[in-house]
């Protein structure tokens, strides 16, 4: 029999070569990982360290001894429960408003020819360039008792007395929706842009009307983007401070305002930190939930 195996020397040479190739591959991975270092450093310095500090501070009572009294106070006090509920209500209302306004608008932009869609997209993104504070006061100008909206309504005789438009939940949600809408529309539009236009044509060729196609094909395919946008808006809404402070006028008490008060009025870092930690935990849970929902939605339409 002629040996079918190659001579020993040849296979040894191949083994050496394999080791060197594996080393090259490892080196390549290391080099590409090095590109993330600046970003990692910033995240560590600006996110991880403060968060750890927050956890640390929240675990000390007002007497400087380690205790869970900060958390105990939050769980016991009805006022804290109300604050959490208000924060979540405002957040959910903002999400609902963003979905109701943003989904049709994104659908509209998606249907436009490229050049015109840029104009409408710019109109959505323009408010990004103005500060939160300016936009909050601008809404106040519109909504207050002697504001433009009330003047017009009374001038037209639609209402006799001025409506209470400012300093309430309505004004707060309105202001926050205005701010969050671009952040909602971008991921939604992204998802819609990824929908193959041939699918829409195919549905039409099979006899489906525009609204049937929109409901059965377009919206389900945009759903992961809508879910992503909604979660993003909700999570960001939980941390709003300026808008509820100005447009809520003291009638809308959200977590961030309570944190600020703990610090500026009582210099109570422990209480403020505990609130911050709870907010962080809620947010993390929500992200986990949304990740699960997204995965389910996407896995159902993987192609």
């Amino acid at each position: 029999m002629v040996a079918l195996n190659p001579p020993a020397s040849l296979s040894v040479a191949q083994a050496d070569n394999g080791g060197r190739l594996a080393w090259d591959a490892r080196l390549e991975r290391l080099v590409s990982f090095a590109f993330t270092l600046p970003c990692l450093a910033v995240v560590a310095l600006c996110v991880l360290v403060p968060c750890a500090w927050l956890f640390f501070l929240s675990a000390f009572g007002s007497d400087g001894k380690a205790s869970l009294e900060n958390y105990q106070r939050i769980l016991d006090g009805a006022s804290y429960a109300r604050i959490f509920i208000t924060t979540f209500q405002v957040g959910l209302a903002t999400v609902a408003a963003c979905v109701l306004i943003g989904v049709p608008f994104a659908s509209f932009i998606n249907g436009l020819p490229p050049r015109r869609s840029v104009i409408f997209l710019a109109a959505v993104l323009l408010p990004f360039w103005t500060s939160l504070l300016v936009r909050a006061y601008a809404w106040l100008v519109l909504l207050q008792r002697t504001g433009i909206v009330n003047s017009v309504l009374m001038g037209l005789g639609i209402t006799k007395a001025p409506l209470e438009l400012a300093f309430n939940h309505f004004a707060t949600v309105l202001g926050m929706t205005h701010i969050m809408l671009p952040i909602f529309i971008l991921p939604v539009l992204g998802a819609m842009r990824n929908i193959d236009s041939a699918l829409i044509r195919a549905a039409a060729s099979m006899g489906a009307s525009r609204s049937y196609t929109y409901r059965r094909i377009f919206l389900p395919l945009a759903a992961p983007g809508i879910a992503a946008g909604a979660i993003l808006v909700f999570v960001m809404s939980l941390g709003f401070y300026v808008t509820p402070a100005i447009l809520g006028g003291g009638n809308v008490n959200v977590i961030s305002m309570r944190i600020a008060r703990s610090l500026s009025n009582y210099s109570n870092w422990g209480a403020a930190s505990a609130l911050g930690v709870l907010l962080l935990v809620f947010t993390a849970l929500l992200f986990a939930l949304s990740y699960g929902v997204q995965r389910v939605l996407l896995s159902r339409q993987r192609s």
């Binding site: 193959d196 041939a198 699918l199 044509r201 195919a202 549905a203 039409a204 060729s205 099979m206 006899g207 489906a208 009307s209 525009r210 059965r216 094909i217 389900p220 395919l221 159902r300 339409q301 993987r302 192609s303």
Partner: peptide, 28 residues
């Protein structure tokens, strides 16, 4: 197009990715 009642087969197939085969075929 949706009132012409012509069957169309597309280059990209244009199957609905969020539906199974049966739902795709029963769609029309």
């Amino acid at each position: 197009a949706n009132q012409r009642g012509f069957g169309v087969v597309f280059q990209s197939y244009a199957l609905f990715p969020h539906m199974d085969v049966m739902a795709n075929v029963t769609f029309p």
